[in-house]
Computed example of a mutant assay.
Amino acid sequence: MRINDVLKGKPSHDVITIAPDASVRELVDLLANHNVGALIVSVDGQTVDGIVSERDVVRRLHDREDVLDILVSEIMTTTVRTCEGTEALTELMQVMTEHRIRHVPVLTDGKLTGIISIGDVVKNRIGELEFERDQLDNYVHQT
């Protein structure tokens, strides 16, 4: 299975981005309104300048009481692991596990085309296992 196959199964194909000069307050609003755990930071909506997650906000709360008023660029991760939609899902699963990352931007020809989360991967894997179980169950009960 390819990463694009998982993206096709997502209810929304929109990739929500935020500008690096947006406030963390704006970030929190977008995360809540779109019910997502991370956003791609992008100046133009097509390139990946960084990624920022709920965890980034929470980790800064300990150090800064004014975290909601600072810029996204101050808390975002700038070294972002990305993938191509044509890559095998098993490879992405390994990368996500090894590097303990939950969200990976998907690029096509260097342009942002999607984002895949660990939840997307798990949901897909559960679907595969349920299909295999059903196939085995049918096989056993037909003989």
Score class of each variant (00 low, 15 high):
2 R>Q: 09
4 N>L: 10
5 D>Y: 01
6 V>F: 05
7 L>P: 04
8 K>L: 09
8 K>H: 10
9 G>Q: 14
11 P>D: 10
12 S>M: 03
14 D>Y: 09
14 D>F: 06
14 D>I: 10
16 I>D: 00
16 I>Y: 05
17 T>E: 00
17 T>R: 01
17 T>I: 00
17 T>V: 12
18 I>L: 07
19 A>E: 13
20 P>N: 11
20 P>S: 10
21 D>L: 08
21 D>G: 06
23 S>K: 13
25 R>G: 08
25 R>Q: 12
26 E>R: 07
27 L>C: 06
27 L>S: 09
28 V>F: 03
28 V>W: 05
28 V>Q: 08
30 L>W: 02
31 L>Q: 11
31 L>T: 07
32 A>V: 13
34 H>A: 04
34 H>P: 01
35 N>D: 14
35 N>V: 07
36 V>S: 03
37 G>Y: 05
38 A>F: 06
40 I>Y: 01
41 V>P: 02
42 S>G: 02
44 D>V: 06
45 G>H: 03
46 Q>L: 09
46 Q>Y: 08
46 Q>V: 02
48 V>L: 04
48 V>P: 00
49 D>G: 07
49 D>T: 09
49 D>P: 00
50 G>L: 03
52 V>H: 06
53 S>F: 03
54 E>S: 05
54 E>L: 10
55 R>P: 05
55 R>I: 08
56 D>T: 09
56 D>K: 05
56 D>Q: 05
57 V>F: 04
57 V>A: 08
58 V>G: 05
61 L>G: 12
62 H>R: 13
62 H>L: 14
63 D>Y: 11
64 R>F: 14
65 E>H: 14
65 E>P: 10
67 V>I: 15
68 L>G: 12
69 D>F: 12
72 V>G: 07
72 V>A: 07
74 E>A: 14
75 I>P: 03
79 T>R: 12
80 V>E: 02
81 R>M: 11
84 E>T: 07
85 G>W: 04
85 G>Q: 01
86 T>Q: 03
89 L>W: 00
89 L>F: 02
89 L>D: 01
92 L>K: 01
92 L>Y: 02
93 M>I: 03
93 M>W: 01
96 M>G: 00
97 T>H: 09
98 E>D: 13
99 H>M: 02
102 R>H: 12
104 V>T: 05
104 V>I: 07
106 V>L: 04
106 V>N: 07
108 T>A: 14
109 D>W: 05
109 D>H: 11
110 G>V: 06
111 K>Y: 03
111 K>P: 00
111 K>Q: 13
113 T>L: 00
116 I>L: 10
117 S>I: 06
118 I>C: 01
123 K>W: 02
124 N>S: 14
124 N>F: 14
126 I>M: 14
126 I>Y: 15
129 L>M: 15
131 F>H: 15
132 E>I: 15
132 E>K: 12
132 E>Y: 13
135 Q>L: 10
135 Q>A: 11
137 D>Y: 07
138 N>F: 09
141 H>E: 14
141 H>L: 11
141 H>G: 13
142 Q>W: 03
142 Q>A: 13
143 T>A: 05
